[in-house]
Design a protein around this nucleic acid. Sequence first.
DNA 1: GTCTAACAAACGAACGTTCGTTGGCAAGAG
DNA 2: CTCTTGCCAACGAACGTTCGTTTGTTAGAC
Lengths: 187, 187
Amino acid sequence: MSRNTKEDVVAAAGRLFATRGYEGTSMRDLGGELGLLGSSLYSHVGSKQDLLVEVVGRGAELFQRSIDQAGEVDGTARDRLRSMIAGHLDVVLDHRDEGRTFLNEARSLDSEHRSEILSARNRYESAFRTVLEEGTADGSIMMDTEPAIGAIFLLSILNAVERWYRDDGKLSRADLVDEVLEFSGVL
Amino acid sequence: MSRNTKEDVVAAAGRLFATRGYEGTSMRDLGGELGLLGSSLYSHVGSKQDLLVEVVGRGAELFQRSIDQAGEVDGTARDRLRSMIAGHLDVVLDHRDEGRTFLNEARSLDSEHRSEILSARNRYESAFRTVLEEGTADGSIMMDTEPAIGAIFLLSILNAVERWYRDDGKLSRADLVDEVLEFSGVL
DNA sequence: GTCTAACAAACGAACGTTCGTTGGCAAGAG
DNA sequence: CTCTTGCCAACGAACGTTCGTTTGTTAGAC
């Protein structure tokens, strides 16, 4: 009989928040997921809101780490863009729960944490805009669309990937990266 | 003292469902929005779920009408694609509440209505895929991406527009249509 | 090695509040 | 008079959370 750790609780919370939404998930639901009573969760966590903060925070951290790694890639701006896209797909596909919760459930955060997440998202979008600008400058990226719009379009595609892509399909992740680059006129 | 009609109730429900989500909206919230008690809403509507069905249904109808109109456009497949994109943007921007609720709150529908909406979405995506195939065949569309993926990418961009586009900005809707076409390599 | 003190994890009952919903009644418009 | 609209009071269920208690494990003292 193995008992549950805080890690288990946060993981299960991510799963339920991602699929049913924060408001659509009750502490009793979450307890049931772990074979516990709802009240037992309070041995591990201070409040339901704390759980959301934790899950969303993990999502934010994953995206942040991804963009940091891509920034260290040397080569042309196009190489860096490719790395950013691949990294984004990995986050969104390998950490579906945290990614979805980060992207969709931020509105349920208290205003302090919500605005933190919002500026994290803005910084993230800026990184995409910047690499597009650099690629236009050094000639490694020929995109007909201006960087500000192109970054938004790219992220729209990337954020939606989790809704339809399956790893066991015919399209590999590497091919998916190429498809995205090709679609946006970079390749 | 003007009294409220069912129309007002459905419109307010759309507004709240779109911004706070279905589960995040209480009947008392909704009543407050109209200067009523929550219980008074039951003079207009059978249940909260009925309201969601109504709002989502309106969203579905708007998208359906848009795609039907675009289908009647004569010219090349590219002309029809342009019309589909413009129509989608109009739905999503002129009927933000119904559009958002249709796109984001379907999971809160009872399973019967949910699967109806899901197949409506599939038919809608099929229409995009088909026009891309036709455009490849008649040579009016040169897209490097295969139609199935291209349709998904296009819809990912279009569905996200409502999150960032403002009508009072520098970018007109017509220009936005061009940007989308250009980004996807059609123009 | 045993006894004991501490701790983490979970239970079960209950708290106050909010939820969706119902039913009876009043005011006003056609 | 009737029909629509809304108020009011109330319902049972579910909500997040707190509390005192129980259980199993871990660590140190004897």
